[in-house]
């Protein structure tokens, strides 16, 4: 679900932000920033990208990867500056300007584990997961309306699915 924008093709920014902002926000949140700081950092990351893009700094703009790296870079600086979360800093590797091979391999392994665990969920759980995570603009409300379930039931299914996948990943390191 990545997007490649042509250099200086500024007209697609709104759509790109709508599509990828949640992911960028989560990646900053995962570093341990508070929710409101994470929101500010992700917004700052988007702003920087737009400016650099307008200056023609990118041959090719691969999203959301570039936005995530930019946001994590800003977040890391923020954490360093405030020295609020030394533990998090120790646990989280400093973001590299480009994704390193080892992290990609590790990420792929995790993805495979998630998919294997997902395959053992119920068909309903798989469909809910697909609508919420793999559909652009997918929400629990959309899943509820498409599948004829209540919103509460869909949220419950999502939490159960996450728990199931987490357990499976713990069993298979």
């Amino acid at each position: 679900m990545s997007t490649v924008l042509e250099p200086r093709g500024g007209h697609d920014w709104d759509a790109a932000i709508r599509r990828h902002d949640r992911r960028v926000y989560l990646s900053v949140l995962a570093l341990g920033l508070s929710p409101d700081r994470a929101r500010e950092v992700s917004q700052a990351a988007w702003t920087r990208l737009i400016e650099q893009h307008a200056k023609g700094a990118f041959e090719e703009l691969e999203l959301p990867g570039l936005a995530i790296r930019q946001a994590r870079f800003l977040a890391f600086n923020e954490l360093k500056r405030t020295r609020v979360e030394a533990r998090v800093l120790a646990a989280v590797p400093e973001p590299a300007p480009v994704p390193d091979v080892e992290r990609i391999a590790s990420g792929r392994q995790e993805v495979e584990q998630v998919l294997a665990a997902l395959a053992t969920c119920t068909p309903t759980a798989r469909k809910v997961f697909g609508i919420v995570y793999a559909t652009p603009g997918g929400t629990a409300a959309l899943a509820a309306s498409q599948m004829g379930l209540s919103l509460q039931r869909v949220r419950q299914i999502l939490c159960e699915t996450r728990a199931h996948i987490r357990r499976a990943m713990e069993v298979t390191p």
């Binding site: 990545s2 992911r23 469909k127």
Partner: peptide, 27 residues
Amino acid sequence: LAEEARFELVLRDAASAARFCPACGDL
């Protein structure tokens, strides 16, 4: 929350890599 966010990112990566049926929505 940070731990959950990291897990959430893995789930989203998995969803990006997964293919869902365009007819019935199953994996």
